[in-house]
Design a binder for these strands. Structure first.
Lengths: 253, 253
DNA sequence: GGTTGACTCTCACGCAGCGTGAGGCAGCAG
DNA sequence: CTGCTGCCTCACGCTGCGTGAGAGTCAACC
């Protein structure tokens, strides 16, 4: 088994020596051994690991995350490769969307059309990273709702979640208000709130059709995980919201 | 011509307020004006520029370079779009090479072939003109998403939840078994498991009609909070369970 | 053996691109 | 006039290295 010095590894992998030092420092990639003089000696297994590191780095993962991924013994090398392939594909898809958006912009410019502010930034929401914990995709990655929500939520940072939560809270307080004011669930106001609720989901998670929204309404009554949320706000609210969602779906369909 | 506050721009373009402040600080994107109180007021042209910035940023350009590119008056807007398209295409090509390399590695692994060190890193160097050092695009909200979903389920009575969970686990392992044995989703076995699933919900949570069960099946695909559960058990299980639930509902109705 | 030049080591500071408060004013609702 | 939300300006912190400084190491050539 041959060994390599930092410089050799650096030139093979096309990274700088400093980078290798850094990876050693933070424990991401420590060489198999050292010479008596203290020179780092990398082995073939270290090269393999470095390759993996560079793959994930190229895909935008922070080094800490990469360490966690690679040190997870429950994942076989083959699975790693599959995962990488999946991630790359996702990234490619995203870039293709970007390209399409650029083409779109070119056409709009030619025709002298003005895009709305929201339109202009649509593509930036979609992302290429996904939760490496769930080994999903391939066969069923074509279900749109899943793809969408996964793509979107995966990219949300703290501020996004705070924003979503803030929107949710404001929506909820409006729900409570209308409910406590005694508005019937099939009133115009209630239906509008239900519609806002649906849009909130569509905007932030996945395309929520009336069909799916109806299902959600049923869940709010049926599943205690959801019921608790609304019943804590106001007793009877879960039922009321459910009815409002139904009325709204009926009304718009 | 309408104007926008930092917060509005931030939510439209899906960047943080801090980012906009930063771009203002370094002179990359200064708002068209300020209110008497010092509030930043962005105009439509600022939004256009921001869009360009985000494009180039996504492609890994350092901000300083982006400023130089955008402030070069000798380049027409149309030229910019064309350039962006070229850059995106180049990046896609590179990623496709990466993907091919991964496939190559997978084959080598299957066959038990050892790649030479140089071979392993070939793709990382392949000279392509621009400096594609991917600046770390670190937006990583997944953990928060996960925490959120955890928090919701945490609202139960503990003991009861444990019993239910035990039952659920046993049911799940039977699902995994059947799924990994390759049973089709419309087989008798699959449908019976789906029926058991429905009964488990009926017994422990709520009256789960076939109608609601169908909804649940859809939710398992659409909502990541549910999907994660099943996909973690076995990749593809969410889809399979969804199909089995549908088949069962069809069958009994 | 001595010298040279390429290579390596360990600090240690610097820089980009923001994240994340702290502390304080602005503007509107009740 | 009080409270809430959004905005402001510092200013320090973090990641992922780049870039020397100062010193030891190694193989080669004289």
């Amino acid at each position: 088994m041959s060994t390599y010095s930092v410089g050799q590894v650096a030139s093979i992998a096309k990274v700088t020596v400093r980078t290798l030092h850094h990876y050693d420092e933070i424990g991401l990639l420590s060489p198999g051994g050292r010479t008596p003089a203290g020179y780092r000696q990398y082995e073939d297994t270290d090269l393999d690991r470095l390759q993996q590191i560079l793959f994930y780095r190229e895909l935008g993962f922070p080094l800490e995350e990469i360490a966690a991924i690679l040190d997870d013994d429950s994942v076989s090398p083959t699975e790693h490769l599959r995962r990488q392939h999946r991630l790359i594909s996702a990234r490619i898809t995203h870039l293709q969307e970007l390209a399409a958006a650029v083409e779109h912009a070119m056409e709009a410019q030619k025709m002298g059309i003005q895009l709305t502010p929201e339109e202009k930034f649509e593509v930036f929401g979609s992302d290429y990273q996904e939760n490496w914990e769930d080994e999903a995709e391939r066969r069923w990655g074509n279900t749109d709702a899943w793809k969408q929500s996964q793509r979107r939520t995966g990219q949300y940072g703290k501020e996004e979640w705070q924003r979503i939560k803030a929107e949710m809270d404001s929506l909820n307080s409006r729900l409570v208000e209308a409910f406590e004011a005694g508005r019937p669930a099939d009133s115009a106001e209630a239906m509008e709130l239900a519609e806002a609720h649906r849009r909130h989901i569509s905007d932030n998670f996945y395309d929520c059709t009336y069909e799916i929204h109806r299902c959600l309404g049923a869940m709010y009554l049926a599943d205690p995980r959801f019921t608790a949320t609304y019943e804590n706000l106001a007793p009877g609210l879960a039922q009321w919201l459910h009815d409002a969602i139904l009325a709204n779906a009926e009304h718009r369909a």
